[in-house]
Amino acid sequence: MLPATAAALAVLAALLAWPVPALLARARWPRRDPLVALVCWQAIGLAGGLSMIGALLVHGLAPWGHSLPEAAWSVLTGDAAEDPVRGDHWVTLTLAGVLAVELVGVLVLSWVRTARTRRRHRELLEVVVRPAAVPDARLLEHPAPVAFCIPGARPLLVLSSGIVAELDEAQLAAVVAHERAHLREHHHLYLLPFVAWEAALPVLPAAARAHAAVRTLVEMRADDVALRSLDGAAPRRTLAQAIVAAAGGGGGAEVPSGALAVAGGAVRARVVRLLEPPSPLPGWARWLALLAAGLLLLAPTALLLLPVL
């Protein structure tokens, strides 16, 4: 383990903390394949956290060995350091521990809080909703056009009486298909790490940018999945009209915290994308993006586990 390893990890962490998320958030290709873009965002988040903690850990443990496994084993077995241990080594070790505990702790805390909030909303809704005409959905008496789902072990898909009255049969089917896509693909799990990242590092602009981008991509992905199950001459226009109706009626303000709603996440961009669909991402580009995401995860892992040759 050499200073070059810590420096390489620090450079990678800096790139993943600002310029890389900024470039991906501004790029136009993610709207062509939201699922691949979501994989890339997950890789950026994981690799960024690993690089930040790893850079501090590598520098702090440098006196004990030439690779992280060797140094960690020396510390655990109580072996003496091979080189003098300076104050900066103790400082970086402390910072690495604090950052690791904060990132993991905030992630766990966010999951617990979100799960508790969803459970509370589900229990309250189950008191006031009744079975809807749509299978596996519940009807909420409310004049605003609202449609949302609460994910979890006992998922709940809710339609308001306002949205049932507002939409025709095809549009309502599009809304239901969108919400079922959220539940089937567990989109709330894509969002959770970025909710935690934003909470743990509120001073980092990339955290808020990443959260917003992932939320939009999750909605675009649900739109794409919903379109596969829709019939009719113009399913894209049907879904776009349903989204506009839900957003225009102020339904977003009525959605419980932790729920996923059809009117959530960059409504204008989604409607434009539905009415003017971009060309699909070529197969080679999809595989190139997935390969980049894999290499991004592999880079800090390799730097941490292997000595610099």
Rank of each mutant, 00 (worst) to 15 (best):
R184W: 13
V112D: 11
L192D: 02
A133L: 14
G162K: 09
E198V: 04
H142M: 07
P205E: 14
A242D: 00
T94H: 09
C149M: 09
H89M: 10
H211V: 03
P202W: 05
L204M: 06
Q171D: 01
V225K: 05
V146Y: 12
L157Y: 13
R268I: 00
V272R: 01
V127K: 13
L167W: 14
M1E: 06
R184E: 15
D88N: 12
A173N: 06
L12N: 03
A47W: 15
R120D: 08
D83M: 11
R286V: 02
A240E: 01
L274F: 05
A233Q: 11
E254F: 07
L107I: 01
A253V: 04
F148C: 04
P277Y: 14
T77F: 14
R215G: 15
A253C: 08
A37E: 10
V127M: 05
R31L: 00
A293D: 02
E123T: 11
E126R: 10
E70N: 10
L309Y: 12
D79Y: 12
G249K: 02
A27Y: 13
L230R: 05
P256V: 05
A72L: 09
L23S: 03
A43C: 06
H121G: 01
A165N: 14
L125G: 05
L35T: 08
W41L: 07
A234C: 09
R270N: 01
W29Y: 15
P69M: 06
L139D: 04
A8F: 06
L57S: 05
W284F: 02
E166I: 09
S51Y: 13
T238G: 09
R26N: 02
G49P: 12
L304S: 04
V106T: 12
L288V: 00
L57M: 13
L191K: 09
A47Y: 15
T92H: 11
Q42V: 01
W197C: 00
P30K: 07
M52L: 10
R28Y: 13
V255D: 10
V91D: 09
L274C: 01
L201H: 15
P69S: 13
A200M: 07
A212H: 15
H89G: 02
A240V: 01
E102T: 10
I44Y: 10
R122A: 02
L260W: 12
R113N: 08
L99Q: 14
P135H: 15
P63D: 15
W111Q: 01
R28P: 07
P135Q: 13
L95D: 12
A213E: 13
A299S: 10
V175H: 07
D223S: 06
M52D: 06
A212L: 13
R154T: 07
A299W: 13
A62G: 05
A196K: 07
D231I: 03
G162F: 08
L139H: 07
L76S: 10
L157R: 14
L306T: 05
L290N: 06
P135R: 08
H188G: 04
R237T: 08
I44Q: 13
L56D: 03
P278G: 15
V101P: 08
P280I: 12
L124C: 05
P235R: 04
E82M: 12
W18N: 04
R270V: 00
L68E: 04
W29D: 04
A144I: 02
W111M: 04
